[in-house]
Design a protein around this nucleic acid. Sequence first.
DNA 1: TGAAATGTTGGGGCG
DNA 2: ACGCCCCAACATTTC
Length: 470
Amino acid sequence: MVLHWFRRDLRVADNTALSEAARRAEVVVPVFILEDALRTGPDVGAARLAFLLRSVRDLRDDLGRRGYPLIIRAGKSELELPKLAAELGAEAVFCNQRYEPYSQARDARVFNALNTAGIGFEVFKDAVVWEEREILTQAGNPYTVFTPYSKAWKARPVPPPYATLPPTTRKYPVVASAPLPLDPAELGHPLTQTVPATGSAGAGKLLDDFLAGPVFAYAEGRDFPAQRGTSRLSPHFRCGTIGIRTVLARLELARKQAGTDPGRRKGCEIFLTELIWREFYQQVLSNFPHVMKGCFRPEYDALGWSENRAHFEAWCAGQTGYPIVDAAMRCLNATGEMHNRLRMITAMFLTKDLLISWQWGERYFMQKLVDGDLGANNGGWQWSAGTGTDAAPYFRIFNPVSQGQKFDPVGDFVRQWVPELAGVDSGVIHEPWTAGIFGGGARYPRPIVDHGEQRLKCLAMFKAVRGVGG
DNA sequence: TGAAATGTTGGGGCG
DNA sequence: ACGCCCCAACATTTC
């Protein structure tokens, strides 16, 4: 008998460890552990927690339909797993690898506890196609620039999906199972945001919809937040409610469907590139764990960031006076989702207009994002701030007005999230101050900073550090 | 996966 | 017809 320990792999299809357990053991017993870290960990977000809990419920239903009762336990994994394995007489615990340093520390404790009890522990690669030591430069070092990394990634064969867990009719021993909270408030995190459809069913619907059309227009469509041009799969990748190999296999079918049309092929290609970004930042985190605590380039730890709380709070609340920034932040606060173009714009604004450290923004995003993933979030923030691997050069500073005009040309996205500007003409919606749209009866704030001035201050701030560091 | 400043060119208005 | 200026429209450089 093998226990399959579900963590961020909440699905029965294309699950490496689960399919291996089914292949190698007579009996597979699935278990999920409600750890304290779900409640007390750093930057717990209620929306993300709700998404996870609901996806565990969906998984329990999926498993139940196949004849497997999901056992839920609460407590420390290093205590609960040996205890459950002993109760059931299991020989081993299987699970899929996680890449956050704190998860790996926990897994080391689990290994020791199981080992002491004479129970096996096997960890499988599942969430990524290639792990941190599998794609290296000729010199044997990790890549720190995306383009050559993606080239090396694409040069390799893509593995097919793993078999779905086969149904069973076996009678399982009845053991205690803890109740599954579905409302994160039960864990001390009241939900204030909406939560997208969860579980493998939710993921499958998104994938079907995306591959039926938007993927073919992705080359342009992905940049317009008012359109549904992106896959929205990120929270599912984070919880493992869909498998990467499944997505890649389906994408390959779409590519064939795209035929010879260069635009449609390009869309498929760019979507693949986005999936590779996810693995790129995952391997950066694994190979350079110091990025969790500071800049990838340590010389930038000396940057003299502002600590203006009022500015930070205005940014968080979507009250900066720059419509595209405010719309994006209000969307995040309400839904836990934010389009990637808007993540770049809001991150650039925090770091290069408000001159506030990317680390403040990184933390806030983790509190609010339904898809918040340590590697991808950290990588994205350091890219925007110009402190990371393959980062935007420090002098590449987005203009929040022209970015709005370029990527929300009619202002539909702004109008959706900034009702104060609902009646403003498209021509000035990204710079309403030029039309006197503030003060008096209007509620929309004036810009809290001047972009032109702040841009120069930002350049000076970076220059000061570069001057010293060389 | 920029934007601003600066430089160059060429057409058209005008004296 | 010619030189001069203005200013788009690009192109290049700089941050």
